[in-house]
């Protein structure tokens, strides 16, 4: 007698295409209209389709007076600087949290978490005068410093997890074979951190890439990054095609970096919280 396969114990079974379609609709739903809007010119309500497709939105967004190219350059520059600093800080702090006995460890963890929990602008407003007095306001350096704590908090969180997966005994073994502390780190642990470092740097970059309010308050409108340009265009211009075009430019790095790093991303990475905020 051939037995029938028992029913699944819980719930219904969605098929593969349905699942992918639903997830795709959810994620792409609001983003696809952006892509449509960016190529429209005259699209009067209540027409379902625009009266004319055109590249005028792109022309305005990319044109010399929009300043998008400069904003992208500024954003990338700040992002790379923040990513570099935060990754170094996070790698060191993550190692300490994962490998070392620390006095007052819980307090340290709490302090490192404050940038995640406290809304950043509560800080930015207070910090503005400090930056002004230090001559750092309205400067790229000031914006990098202002964005650094939040980015460093996330890289520390992430790297302490990565370090916990590396066996400290390997470095000890290296030391017995004559390697100094730095060589032991560079030649033994560093190769094993590689994937984590890439993800940490990527997250830090994205934290910086998304930041609006810190940049606005500390940069004083002088340092114009992509989010500042996007907000100004969206709120002030009424030019929906140009707004959509800038938004599309701004969304490319996050999507691209996440897609590239998808294999490195562990499902429950706490550091995911930081991205896009």
């Amino acid at each position: 007698m051939t037995a029938p396969v028992p029913r699944r114990p819980l719930g219904t079974v969605l098929t593969r295409p349905a699942v992918v379609l639903l997830a795709g609709l959810w994620v792409a739903g609001p983003l696809l209209p952006l892509a449509v809007q960016a190529f429209t010119d005259q699209w009067f309500y209540p027409d379902l389709l625009p009266a004319r497709w055109s590249l005028s939105g792109w022309r305005q967004a990319l044109g010399p007076q929009s300043g998008l190219a400069e904003a992208v350059a500024t954003s990338i520059g700040i992002g790379v600087a923040v990513a570099a600093c935060a990754t170094v800080l996070g790698t060191a702090a993550g190692r300490a949290l994962a490998w070392h006995r620390l006095p007052g460890r819980r307090l340290m963890e709490l302090v490192l978490l404050t940038p995640v929990l406290v809304p950043p602008f509560a800080v930015a407003m207070g910090a503005q005068i400090v930056y002004l007095r230090a001559g750092l306001a309205d400067s790229v350096t000031g914006v990098v410093l202002a964005q650094l704590p939040a980015a460093a908090a996330y890289t520390t969180l992430l790297m302490s997890g990565v370090w916990a997966g590396v066996d400290p005994a390997l470095e000890r073994q290296g030391r017995t074979l004559g390697a100094g502390p730095w060589r032991a780190f560079r030649e033994i642990s560093l190769p094993r951190l590689h994937g984590g470092l890439v993800v940490a740097a990527m997250f830090a970059f994205l934290v910086s890439w998304s930041d609006y309010l810190m940049t606005l308050l500390i940069g004083g409108g002088v340092v114009t990054t992509v989010p500042l340009l996007l907000f100004a265009t969206a709120a002030g211009s009424g030019n929906q095609a140009a707004t959509a075009a800038i938004a599309l430019v701004a969304v490319v790095p996050p999507l691209l970096l996440t897609a590239l790093a998808a294999r490195q991303l562990a499902g429950g990475d706490t550091a995911l919280l930081g991205v896009g905020r």
Binding site: M1, T2, A3, P4, V5, P6, R7, P9
Partner: peptide, 23 residues
């Protein structure tokens, strides 16, 4: 009842339970 066999039968007290979920 956590794995389905490809053939054969399991009886508890003489009654086939293959179609019954674990609970």
């Amino acid at each position: 009842g956590l794995t389905a066999p490809t053939g054969g039968d399991v009886r508890l007290a003489g009654r086939s339970v293959l179609r019954l979920p674990p609970h």
